[in-house]
């Protein structure tokens, strides 16, 4: 026991507890996820698996990417020109009725030219597009198109304005700084999405969506394009390295929170806690009192 204790001092206590608990007392497998070192093999592989759109693309090493972007781990993806023709067919069948031929927009939907492949990828891969009723705020739903079809549509729209707008990014989180990401997330994102990323209602019936299922590629696309009511954060505003840190924080911490203390109660804070305290805590003890005491 003494040797075990001394050995434990050498590694972070949270990890040590996870190791110690792994054999005998594993209660919440995800509980230690947040304390895993960023860029470890596990998080890198999960990133790769979740950025389906990027892994499908044949040329992920972006030739068009600037040196600083690559150094920051944010690599623009160049879509092959062979994607354009099938993309045109998909667009004509599914998008052109609102966005018009050549994606120039109609009275019902905006012009898509010049927005860049990243914008298209965000809206289509999150299932927000196609949208049945353009007067409602689009919500995340299972995407209509698979990853390849999404990239083909994006390549088609990008083909009108090559090099203009926000490209699709592949994000490499291995160099990310989670502490920086935490601070930047709190400053720039938490005011709408809440500090736990649960999302909340905004003015006039709009809402900030939950961040719990977004992929790293979708997060960076949202930061750079500002979908819907979200502000646009350009590289002059949030640098590529900062954006990578935010993506890492959302992907590794917000989406896998360290709920060391038990059930997270939806990340809804004191409202949920108050209900639990009054209904389960005080309510349960009232039942106990009702049992112990007399009823007449």
């Amino acid at each position: 026991m003494r040797r075990l204790l001394r050995a434990r001092l050498l590694v972070p206590a949270g990890v040590a507890a996870g190791v110690a608990a792994a054999g005998l007392l594993t209660f919440t497998p995800a509980a230690q996820a947040g304390t895993a070192p960023s860029g470890s093999s596990s998080s890198a592989s999960s990133l790769h698996a979740s950025t389906a759109s990027a892994s499908v693309a044949p040329t992920t090493s972006g030739a068009a990417g600037s040196a600083s972007a690559k150094a920051a781990g944010i690599n623009p993806v160049t879509l092959p020109s062979s994607y354009i023709a099938p993309g045109e067919a998909l667009f004509a069948a599914n998008c052109a009725s609102c966005h018009g031929t050549d994606a120039v927009g109609t009275s019902r939907a905006p012009n898509l030219q010049g927005l860049g492949a990243g914008t298209i990828d965000f809206w289509v891969s999150t299932g927000r597009m196609p949208l049945a009723d353009p007067t409602e705020q689009a919500v995340r739903k299972p995407p209509r198109f698979n990853a390849l079809q999404t990239l083909e549509i994006a390549a088609y729209v990008q083909s009108f304005t090559p090099g203009v707008g926000v490209p699709i990014y592949h994000v490499n989180l291995s160099q990310a700084n989670l502490a920086q990401g935490q601070s930047l997330f709190t400053l720039n994102c938490a005011a709408c999405h809440t500090i736990t990323g649960a999302g909340d209602a905004l003015a006039d019936g709009a809402f900030a969506p939950s961040l719990h299922v977004a992929t790293p590629t979708q997060i960076i696309e949202a930061i750079r394009t500002g979908p819907g009511n979200m502000p646009h954060f350009s590289a002059g505003n949030i640098t590529n390295a900062q954006a990578r840190d935010i993506v890492a924080y959302v992907h590794e911490v917000i989406q896998h929170p360290t709920n060391r203390g038990g059930f997270g109660l939806g990340g809804n804070g004191p409202v949920a806690e108050g209900f639990v305290a009054l209904l389960i805590g005080v309510g349960g003890l009232l039942l106990v009192a009702f049992w112990i005491g007399e009823r007449a």
Binding site: L187, A190, A191, C192, L202, A203, D204, A206, G226, G228, N229, M230, P231, H232
Partner: peptide
Amino acid sequence: CPVGLYQEQTQQLVCPCHQSI
């Protein structure tokens, strides 16, 4: 409170504490 909630389309700032717009 910091009025950090900016709704870009409606061009409103919302206070996250007590929802002044």
